[in-house]
């Protein structure tokens, strides 16, 4: 058996672009107004789309159904710290090396949010080895389109589509990590379905599809001595995220996320992630402080390569979360890390 890389560079960029184009070409009358992009029908009795299903485009690690009002520019500053298992000496992960993402997004036309960002640490498939954390910068471009907005008597839920394409720009002159430039790409598609159940409680379900251009593989000998290539992981990974927001006051909320992997891979199956925390909002800011299992700050990487677990984890013999299973020990209880998101909004 010989390990090898399987490259499957598809034209995954065109699909989201075409989908967004189709959505934009739809007659606007067929679409409900965005929760935060309400027009100004003057008759007070008119039923309007619900507002503020969520108060930020982020809820911990997940996107929300929200698209800010047209002309809004948002800056995201996101951190994920080390895991809490080293206790006080590491101040429960706060003193550990952190992962950082800085992002910027803008709403050029109603219902459409366009953004990009860069992330410090990501994960990659190392040829003839296994998955490992690598430094970036990982650049990502993303789009979110609000398809419908919950409206009494019209739409029971709000629905948005989110797509993210990522490219790792790490220097690799000898191609030790990325044999081909196409191996640097990963893609993420997600349908966000949310309902503001009461003024305080909002729920969201978000199925997603992650695609990676490269996975490890191995040869096996067939009966006739021919070699067959087997992927050790699938190129596509399905997952579903369930999120909840409960408002304690007008500006303070509790938040909860659970991300469940669906696709089963031959090896290196990712773990689910649970996150819970608190959100504070002001006129132009959102502050989110929470515990989570996701470290990578990129949805495709998180969903495919998460090694932390909310219910029990593998104690690796090294600090590298990608240590092979046979060098590790299963430990009961979850392994979480502290995360925070800060967003700043400007209106133009």
């Amino acid at each position: 058996m010989k390990l090898l890389l399987i490259n499957k560079a598809k034209c995954w960029v065109t699909a989201p672009v075409l989908l967004i184009g189709c959505l934009l070409s739809l007659n606007g009358n067929l679409l409900a107004q965005d929760s935060t992009v309400a027009e100004a029908p003057r008759a007070p009795a008119k039923v309007k789309p619900v507002k503020n299903t969520f108060q930020s485009v982020w809820l911990g690690d997940n996107q929300t159904v929200m698209v800010p009002v047209k002309g809004s520019m948002e800056m995201d500053i996101m951190h994920r710290f080390g895991t809490w298992n080293n206790g006080y000496q590491d101040f429960w992960g706060l003193f550990a090396p952190s992962n950082i993402r800085i992002g910027l997004s803008y709403v050029p036309v109603k219902k459409l949010n366009v953004g990009f960002g860069f992330t410090k640490t990501t994960a990659a498939v190392i040829p003839q080895a296994t998955i490992s954390s690598v430094s970036g910068p990982l650049w990502d471009g993303n789009l979110k389109y609000s398809i419908i907005t919950q409206t009494k008597g019209k739409y029971p839920v709000s629905v948005s589509y989110y797509v993210n394409a990522s490219f790792n720009t790490k220097k690799d002159p000898n191609h030790d990590i990325y044999r081909y430039n196409s191996d640097r790409w990963s893609f993420f598609h997600q349908i966000l379905i949310a309902r503001k159940v009461t003024n305080k409680l909002s729920l969201q379900v978000a199925p997603s599809l992650s695609h990676h251009n490269v996975v490890n593989g191995y040869y096996t000998k067939e009966n006739d001595s021919t070699l067959k290539i087997n992927p050790s992981m699938e190129f596509e990974h399905f997952a579903v995220a369930i999120s909840a927001r409960y408002k304690l006051t007008t500006v303070t909320s509790l938040m909860l996320n659970y991300d469940q992997p669906i696709t089963r891979h031959a090896t290196n199956n990712p773990n689910p992630s649970l996150s819970f925390g608190i959100e504070f909002n002001t006129s132009s800011h959102s502050f989110q402080l929470f515990f989570t299992n996701f470290f990578y700050l990129n949805p495709a990487i998180n969903n495919m390569y998460n090694t932390n677990n909310p219910f029990g984890y593998t104690d690796h013999s090294t600090n590298d979360p990608a240590t092979p299973e046979d060098e590790s020990t299963k430990v009961k209880g979850g392994r979480f890390l502290i995360g925070f998101n800060i967003t700043r909004l400007w209106n133009y």
């Binding site: 992009v37 007070p44 507002k51 909004l345």
Partner: peptide, 9 residues
Amino acid sequence: KKKIPDQDE
């Protein structure tokens, strides 16, 4: 007027 575009609000 840009942050709260709905005049009713």
